[in-house]
């Protein structure tokens, strides 16, 4: 895929904004339970709630395990999350694009040959 300088600049600025939010601003986010958790606690929806299977993971709870400083730990976890999500999202799009490129004709979304080809991948 072609990538112009303008597109690169835009993507870079967008990524910087995401890193700033996850790595810095997130420290100032509200610690209160979110709407669902609050209602669940108030009305008793959570009486059978179970601990998360990955609650001892290195990034569980948006903090890096072993980093004592709360701001640093949360910021690093946020940056890691942005990186993981960017890779996963871009990777998925790349796979979908490759599937597209394998069809008979490009640019025409209504290509009847495409549905069959896409189906073969599953």
């Amino acid at each position: 895929m072609t990538m112009t300088k303008r597109n690169k600049a835009f993507l870079l600025i967008g990524l910087l904004a995401a890193l700033l939010l996850a790595g810095g601003v997130s420290y100032y986010a509200s610690d209160s339970p979110d709407g669902l958790n609050r209602v669940a606690a108030d009305k008793g929806l959570d009486q059978q709630a179970k601990d998360h299977a990955a609650e001892d993971g290195p990034l569980a709870g948006y903090s890096v395990k072993g980093v004592g400083n709360e701001r640093l730990s949360g910021g690093l976890a946020g940056v890691a999350g942005v990186g993981i999500t960017l890779l996963a999202g871009t990777g998925l799009v790349y796979v979908v694009r490759r599937r597209n490129a394998g069809s008979l004709r490009d640019d025409d979304g209504d290509d009847p040959g495409r549905a069959g080809l896409a189906g073969q991948h599953r």
């Binding site: 895929m1 993507l11 904004a17 995401a18 939010l21 996850a22 986010a29 339970p33 799009v93």
Partner: peptide
């Protein structure tokens, strides 16, 4: 296509920013 990965990363980041909506709820 290049936007999609960025959008996912941006939403991840934005979801970390809990804002207060009512007393004790975000």
């Amino acid at each position: 296509a290049p936007m999609a990965g960025l959008v996912a990363a941006f939403i991840f980041a934005a979801q970390m920013i809990n804002f207060p909506v009512a007393s004790g709820t975000s």
